[in-house]
């Protein structure tokens, strides 16, 4: 069976980290786009279809929480997994209140990350599906009016 890759946008100011985790995820059959700050993340989301964003919280400039805030306004259907080097889970939980799917502490366990990625992707697919059905219903209704 061929695995359909998840389109992941990996955002972290640590370039080495982005590079190596991207390689590992690609090796595991995912499709990864790198970004190194919040603005770059938002720019890519405008151009490319993305399923899940893996987002570092602590970044210079626009931090992860701010970026998350904007993602949820402009691309509400994209799921976000927060990544934090802070053991204190509180910022991460604050992020979940803002609509993040889940969070992970650095260094993260890869199996954990994979499990959360597939959960996030499933949620996104279900939502896409619901929207498609709603659109079809609307089309049908319109059709009936003719």
């Amino acid at each position: 069976m061929i695995k359909i890759p998840t389109n992941i946008l990996l955002v972290d100011d640590e370039k080495d980290f982005v590079e190596i985790l991207a390689m590992r995820l690609e090796e595991a059959g995912e499709k990864v786009t790198p970004a190194y700050d919040g603005q770059m993340c938002l720019d890519i989301l405008d151009k490319k279809p993305i399923d899940v964003v893996i987002l570092d919280i602590k970044m210079p400039g626009m931090d992860g929480i701010n970026t998350l805030h904007k993602i949820k306004i402009m691309h509400p259907l994209v799921e976000v997994i927060l990544l934090t080097g802070h053991g204190s889970t509180e910022t991460a939980i604050e992020g979940m209140k803002l609509g993040a799917f889940d969070y992970l502490l650095k260094p993260a366990d890869f199996d954990d990350l994979k499990a959360k990625l597939s959960g996030a992707r499933k949620k996104k697919e279900e939502q896409d599906e619901r929207i498609r059905k709603a659109e079809v219903r609307q089309l049908l209704r319109r059709g009936g009016n003719i």
């Binding site: 190596i20 590992r24 080097g85 502490l105 650095k106 260094p107 890869f110």
Partner: peptide, 11 residues
């Protein structure tokens, strides 16, 4: 330390 640790881990 968590950041470099994460890089070692992923590598």
């Amino acid at each position: 330390i968590n950041n470099p640790l994460a890089i070692i881990n992923e590598s």
